[in-house]
Nucleic acid binder design. Sequence first.
DNA 1: AAGAGCTGCAACCGCCAGACA
DNA 2: ATGTCTGGCGGTTGCAGCTCT
Length: 430
Amino acid sequence: MGRSPCCDKVGLKKGPWTPEEDQKLLAYIEEHGHGSWRALPVKAGLQRCGKSCRLRWTNYLRPDIKRGKFSLQEEQTIIQLHALLGNRWSAIATHLPKRTDNEIKNYWNTHLKKRLAKMGIDPVTHKPINDALLLTDGKSKNAANLSHMAQWESARLEAEARLVRESKLLSGTFHRSLPLITTSTANIATATTTTMGLSASPTSTSQSVNKSTQSPPPPPQLCLDILKAWQGVWGGGVRATNPGGGGGGGGVTGFDLESPTSTLSFSENVVPVNGEVGESSNMNSTSMVEFVENSGGCENDGLVKEEGEEDWKGFGNGTSNQEFSKHGIENNGMCFTSALNEHEMENHNNNSNAWTPESTRVDGNFIEGFTELLLNNFGDRNATPEENGNGDSENGGASGGESDYYEENKNYWNSILNLVNSSPSDSRMF
DNA sequence: AAGAGCTGCAACCGCCAGACA
DNA sequence: ATGTCTGGCGGTTGCAGCTCT
């Protein structure tokens, strides 16, 4: 113990970096790599501690960092992953290419957290605040347990991913699929090629090179153990979404649930959601899975926007919103209903009976930020089945307070699972 | 126009875990 | 087995810029 702070030496500068300092740091790293961060400042001629240099590099100077506003999709990803992982920003950052954990953390604290709170959703538990009382019955306890389990699972998967990464580094081959190292990875998540070099949180201990340019991340190692658990909790089968509604006949039964922890696999029957996203057809690794009851009639319609709020705002023009059914539109694993602006959401909070499909109308000014996840969670809670058209009646699902809660959680986790399943091939979350 | 209050973000701090001697 | 070094991570702070009154 008794470790001395790294910045306690007199003469070391603190505070904002100057352009000159940035230039020195950049020039040094470009030429030599960062090597030992502790030794770097002296070599680079900086009056900073190594830690400060490292942070400046990883959070600001690194060339593979995207700055600027978060897109709607990024917001969704953050919220969903936060629901799954909690405040594990580095893990979340691995799922958001070119965003740093610090940036995500800041964005969460300054924007998303407030928004959730405003909507009456606990930003910690991602549950409606007044739903705490519901956590007294058995099923809800199961849901809570699963939330915990999800965290545990993600931690385990991270460890696995680390092994994958390290083995990959050793092998030195970045452009081929990795064999699955553990038995816990779902076959559905067959590793895919990745070329993205970003590493938000490199774990290799080798410091002699600039890792951001030399350590392409491993492909995603997705695990759907949590899915099994949900299957158990909700007692329903799991099947691939068929946006045609009811197609596919009875859903997938091909889950191989041999082991309580690790040997989940999917049959070939899993049907990817209509409308693959992205430039490749790598959806073989990102099949969508949804619970049977969820999501009638979601279609992509090709309305996929990658980044940029401007693009998303385009959804708000008077005509396009007509294309959003009340049931939502499956879109890269996320099911967009329409969107509420904050004002509407506030109004809604003030009048819990006010929510109607009409209230979700996009009035030409889309409406930053709220995810389908939240909308579903929020809207379902307050709309009657007739109003939200969320398929309770169609699916024979129970309605009413208690079962609403299950439905909401189901949708919530469907969103998260779909997010995970639809991870881009360069994702390294797991 | 000016001061107060608020917001967003870069940077810092302290703790932790892995590597290594 | 133990202590030290190092990098990573999450929480927090400080300040510049913006908005409000």
